[in-house]
Amino acid sequence: ATNIVGKVKWYNSTKNAGFIEQDNGGKDVFVHKSAVDAAGLHSLEEGQDVIFDLEEKQGKAYAVNLRIK
């Protein structure tokens, strides 16, 4: 899926990971530091509006192509 709108639920820069809550009510999506880095960002803030694509690896959904809304 592409161009999904959501809000950062939480992001821990020590653990280099967090979750994004989908505005469409879907399951929360894992976001890794690699996606944050690829977006040219240093970190994510709780409640921040984002747009992202979903990629599945080994049955788990990940946020990729992250951008700030």
Rank of each mutant, 00 (worst) to 15 (best):
Y62I: 06
A35I: 07
A39S: 11
N65E: 03
A61R: 14
V5Q: 13
H42N: 12
F19E: 07
F19M: 12
W10E: 03
A35V: 08
L66F: 01
G6R: 00
Q58A: 13
N65P: 00
E55Q: 11
L44Q: 00
H42Q: 12
V50E: 00
D23A: 15
N16K: 15
V64M: 05
H32Q: 08
D53K: 02
T14Q: 13
L66R: 00
V36P: 00
L44V: 03
A1W: 12
L41A: 05
E56D: 08
A35N: 03
N65R: 08
V64L: 04
G26A: 10
Q48F: 07
T2E: 09
K9Q: 03
I4K: 09
K15R: 12
D49I: 15
N16T: 07
L41V: 08
V5T: 15
G47R: 05
G59T: 04
I51A: 04
V36M: 09
K7C: 06
N16M: 13
V29H: 03
W10C: 10
Y62S: 07
H32K: 07
E55A: 11
T14M: 13
A63L: 04
V36S: 01
K57G: 08
D53E: 04
F30H: 06
H32D: 10
Q22T: 13
A39M: 07
N16R: 15
K27G: 10
A38E: 08
K27L: 09
E56V: 15
L44R: 00
V36G: 01
F19Q: 07
G47F: 04
L44F: 05
Y62N: 05
E21G: 11
D23P: 14
K27F: 09
A63G: 03
V31N: 00
N3Q: 07
I20V: 04
K27E: 10
I51Y: 07
V64H: 04
A39T: 05
G59N: 08
T14F: 14
H42F: 12
T14E: 12
E21C: 13
K27M: 10
V8K: 00
N65A: 04
N65S: 04
H42I: 12
A38H: 08
R67T: 05
G59R: 04
F19D: 01
D28I: 11
S43T: 14
K69S: 12
Y11G: 01
G18T: 02
I20N: 00
G18H: 02
A17F: 15
W10P: 00
W10K: 04
T2F: 14
G26S: 09
V50F: 03
L44C: 03
V50M: 05
G59V: 01
S43N: 12
V8G: 01
G59D: 06
G26E: 09
Q48N: 06
N24K: 10
I51S: 04
F19C: 12
A63Q: 01
Y62V: 06
H42A: 13
V50D: 00
N12E: 06
E56M: 14
V50G: 00
R67I: 07
K27Y: 09
I20K: 00
V36R: 02
V64S: 06
K15F: 13
K69A: 12
R67V: 07
H42T: 13
K9H: 04
Q22E: 04
I51F: 06
V64C: 06
L44E: 00
D37C: 14
L41P: 02
L54A: 03
I4T: 04
T2P: 06
Q22M: 13
F52M: 02
L66N: 00
Q48K: 05
V8C: 03
K7F: 06
Q48V: 10
L41M: 08
K9C: 05
N24C: 11
D28S: 08
G59H: 06
G40F: 06
Y62M: 08
D28T: 08
S43L: 10
D53M: 03
D37T: 14
E21Q: 14
V50Y: 03
G6M: 02
N65V: 02
Q58M: 12
D53P: 00
A61S: 13
L41N: 02
E46A: 15
A63I: 04
G47S: 05
D23M: 15
Y62K: 07
A61N: 10
I4E: 03
Y11P: 01
V36W: 04
A17E: 10
S43R: 12
E46H: 13
A17S: 14
E46M: 14
K60T: 08
N12H: 08
N3C: 09
V64W: 07
G26T: 07
Y11W: 13
V29R: 02
K15T: 10
I68Q: 06
L54C: 09
Q58F: 13
K69Q: 13
S43Q: 11
E56W: 15
E56R: 12
S43V: 11
S13T: 12
A35P: 01
G25L: 07
V64P: 01
D23F: 15
I51M: 10
E55R: 11
G6N: 01
R67Q: 08
I4R: 12
H32G: 10
K60D: 05
